[in-house]
Amino acid sequence: MELFGQSGNFVLINIVSGNIDFDLRDDNPAPCENIWVGNSSTAPTDGECI
């Protein structure tokens, strides 16, 4: 989820794998306005809110 307007989303129960850099990434700064719950990844995640 990229910066500038992607907030207030629920990202729930996803299985993510096979990406090169990051499987889960939220570039929005804190305070966290996206909700990440029950997600699973094989590559690193990035972002204060994940």
Rank of each mutant, 00 (worst) to 15 (best):
M1V: 08
M1N: 05
M1F: 07
M1G: 02
E2W: 00
E2R: 02
E2L: 04
L3Q: 03
L3G: 00
L3D: 05
L3V: 03
F4E: 08
F4R: 04
F4M: 02
G5N: 13
G5T: 06
G5E: 10
G5S: 09
G5A: 10
Q6N: 15
S7A: 13
N9R: 14
N9I: 15
F10K: 15
F10A: 15
V11R: 02
V11D: 08
V11I: 15
V11S: 04
V11E: 07
L12I: 14
L12E: 12
I13F: 10
I13E: 12
I13T: 11
N14A: 10
N14S: 14
N14I: 04
I15L: 12
I15M: 10
I15S: 12
V16Y: 02
S17I: 12
G18T: 11
G18C: 14
N19G: 10
N19V: 09
N19D: 12
N19K: 08
D21C: 00
D21V: 05
D21A: 07
F22N: 04
F22G: 00
F22Y: 15
F22K: 02
D23F: 01
L24D: 02
L24A: 02
L24C: 03
R25P: 01
R25G: 04
D26P: 02
D26R: 01
D27I: 00
D27S: 05
D27T: 05
D27C: 00
N28T: 05
N28P: 01
P29W: 00
P29A: 05
A30F: 01
A30T: 06
P31H: 03
P31N: 03
P31L: 03
P31A: 04
C32S: 07
C32G: 01
C32I: 02
C32F: 02
C32V: 03
E33Y: 06
E33T: 13
N34P: 11
N34Q: 11
N34K: 11
N34D: 15
N34Y: 09
N34R: 13
I35R: 13
I35S: 13
I35M: 09
I35L: 13
W36N: 10
W36A: 04
W36G: 01
V37H: 08
V37F: 10
G38M: 07
G38F: 07
G38N: 12
G38D: 11
G38S: 09
G38A: 10
N39S: 09
N39G: 11
N39V: 06
N39R: 06
S40L: 11
S41F: 08
S41I: 12
T42V: 14
T42Y: 10
A43Q: 15
A43D: 12
P44C: 06
T45S: 13
T45K: 06
T45L: 06
T45I: 09
D46S: 09
D46R: 08
D46Y: 07
D46C: 03
G47E: 06
G47M: 04
G47K: 01
G47W: 02
E48N: 03
E48H: 00
C49Y: 00
C49D: 06
C49F: 05
I50A: 08
I50C: 13
